[in-house]
Design a protein around this nucleic acid. Structure first.
Lengths: 185, 185
DNA sequence: GCACGAAACGGAGGAAGTCTCCGTATACTG
DNA sequence: CAGTATACGGAGACTTCCTCCGTTTCGTGC
């Protein structure tokens, strides 16, 4: 890759992260180009679709997801608290930018999406948490990690779109958690 | 209202229902105007915002919601089956047009939305079903009908956006239902 | 009937956003 | 330092939204 191309690539990424966090994932592409000091053509050459750009931006903060999942697995919290803590982190993570939950949850399980690998990271992390509960027989067996991602992602979508407060999220998550656990309260 | 205005109003409504079901609630407004044989200005005079138009279109099939809720309440089904039957109908109803779940669930609880009254109809119907279970002590008490609407609506949103099959919806609904009911399975 | 004012129409066009095309400029290679 | 592959940039085509205002139509009173 040519030196100027590399420089632009990085500049675009840096500006995109900034703009996405200010105005959401639907922010005008041309604005990002302008603020990065490049032409629209240049931006589109580097990132042909909006999703390609989102994928690149999201990449950096997706690593922490694995760490969070491992923490929860290692934590010895009771099932209910473990799930709440994990789902809460999950929702927070994908809700970092407005429009993020819909984007990510919509691509969940769709191998053609440019952001599929990110979804897979999330799904795998979720599988690890669920797996540790399943081993102990705490979890219902008729639902897989993909569907749990969709369900928790769904909560994040409505919270994001409706501007709901954390309490609402938590009370919806509590219902989901009770639905996932085997035993009585 | 003048006779020509009335005629146009009805024609627009008829065409909008058609176009929305073909192409989803995001279909271009100008297309609807063209296909209704009126100018864009005319359409916008009758329905200043897209939501006003959606509200008018949705009005007709919102009545059946009350009937469905009453059927479920009267049916004497066991709690689990009653809720599944009701939620399934709920999801089906709001998913009639692509984009419908997001629109409706996003407006849920937001009194400023032009489609608020429709949301209230749904919420009230949901409250009736939940109330009949609550009376019998079957339901957890720390969640209200609005949040249940959001939760079930959330399932519909991801199913709509991801093109999920009815089985996926049903298995997510089952989790929600188990989370809402008090007793063990 | 007919004329007149109010009501309604319609589509041109501005604004915002997406994305492409291609003439121009720049970086690397030998 | 010349030549070529690579990359740049922004004009502009296209789409959709929505408004503005000159023109048309309706319905009423005479």
């Amino acid at each position: 890759m040519r030196a100027d191309a590399l420089k632009n690539h990085e500049k675009i990424l840096e500006v995109a992260a900034q703009v996405f966090s200010e105005r959401g994932l639907d922010a005008p592409i041309d604005d990002i180009a302008t603020r990065a000091g490049v032409g629209a053509g240049t931006l589109y050459r580097h990132f042909p679709t909006r999703d390609d750009l989102i994928d690149a931006v999201v990449k950096s903060w997706m690593n922490q997801v694995d760490a969070t999942a491992d923490d929860v697995v290692a934590s010895d919290l009771p099932p209910r608290e473990a799930l709440l803590s994990w789902f809460d982190a999950y929702v927070t993570r994908i809700s970092r930018n407005k429009g993020g939950p819909a984007k990510i949850t919509g691509a969940m399980g769709n191998a053609d999406s440019p952001i599929y690998t990110k979804c897979e990271t999330l799904r795998a992390a979720n599988e690890r948490v669920l797996g540790s509960l399943r081993e102990r027989g705490e979890l219902r067996s008729d639902i897989d990690s993909l569907e749990v991602c969709r369900l928790v992602g769904a909560v994040a979508v409505v919270a994001d779109q409706g501007g709901l407060p954390p309490e609402s999220v938590r009370s919806m998550l509590n219902v989901v958690i009770d639905g996932l656990l085997n035993s009585p309260s």
